[in-house]
Design a protein around this nucleic acid. Structure first.
Lengths: 141, 141
DNA sequence: TTAGGTGCAAATGATTTGCAATAAT
DNA sequence: ATTATTGCAAATCATTTGCACCTAA
């Protein structure tokens, strides 16, 4: 049930053809110390707290390139913005509509997962949102 | 596998305490004739095509109240905006990353659904996104 | 040195809001 | 007549972009 997040070593950046900059290392460190996904502007303000003054545009660019390289995952929680987290094993999120707390679940069958959530976490599942992304028949050429 | 959408009768609006206005009826009609979910601004431009000149703000307000009343469902497809459809039986969406086509699936177990999608639709599932919304233990008081 | 990164300011896109005018019941 | 609804303009929020400057390798 626990999700393990990869700690991304700074050298990883070089391996991926990315320069090691203070802003990038700062973003990684913030995401490593995080248990739930953050949006770009929150990451930006955390950077400022660490006395790393960056521009929001920079944070967006960093998150973009990290997403392209697969270092971070990105998704929406019906808030009208994206959240990011270090890429981990496949898992889902349960979001409390009351307090906003976001937790991980690492199973993959909806029914079973729902039952587990109800029994183990006493989380009341009101609904779930599921989309599949891929390539349709006519686009597979 | 087919999802049935409720045709919303105009009288429904009155039952829900909503006035029957041209803009609202127009939005309903557009959504009824739709097989895949639309975003607010697309709905707005469809209204103009029907010579129903409305303001985007009005469309947003209509969709909001419809959503609150449960007439429409609302979700995100990693586009940075919301899509809306008439509320139907529980189902999921498969999105082609190549052409953007959005289709419905009305099953509910991820693995089975993935297999079905692969076999019946020749849709190549690359990933899926799944979130649960509800109330966590500490908020259930 | 030099290509890749960043800051800044302006632009874009989705959505929201205040308020006065208007239309549904 | 009364209240909900709409239009319009301005504001907000998330995100992107152009361009000149800077810095990691």
């Amino acid at each position: 049930m626990t999700v393990s997040y990869n700690k991304v070593q700074p050298e990883e950046l070089h391996k991926l053809g990315l320069k090691q900059t203070p802003a990038r290392l700062g973003v990684l460190k913030i995401l490593e110390n995080q248990t739930s996904p953050l949006d770009a502007l929150t990451i930006h303000s955390y950077l400022r707290e660490k006395n790393l003054k960056t521009d929001p545009a920079t944070v967006y660019r960093i998150l973009d390139v990290f997403y392209q390289k697969g270092i971070v995952s990105r998704f929406e929680l019906e808030e009208g913005k994206f959240r990011y987290e270090l890429t981990a094993e496949d898992h889902h999120h349960i979001v409390c509509e009351s307090c906003g707390k976001i937790e991980d679940v690492s199973d993959c069958e909806v029914d079973k997962v729902e039952k587990q959530i109800k029994m183990r976490k006493r989380f009341l599942v009101k609904r779930h949102s599921l989309q599949f992304y891929g390539v349709c028949a006519s686009c597979q050429g």
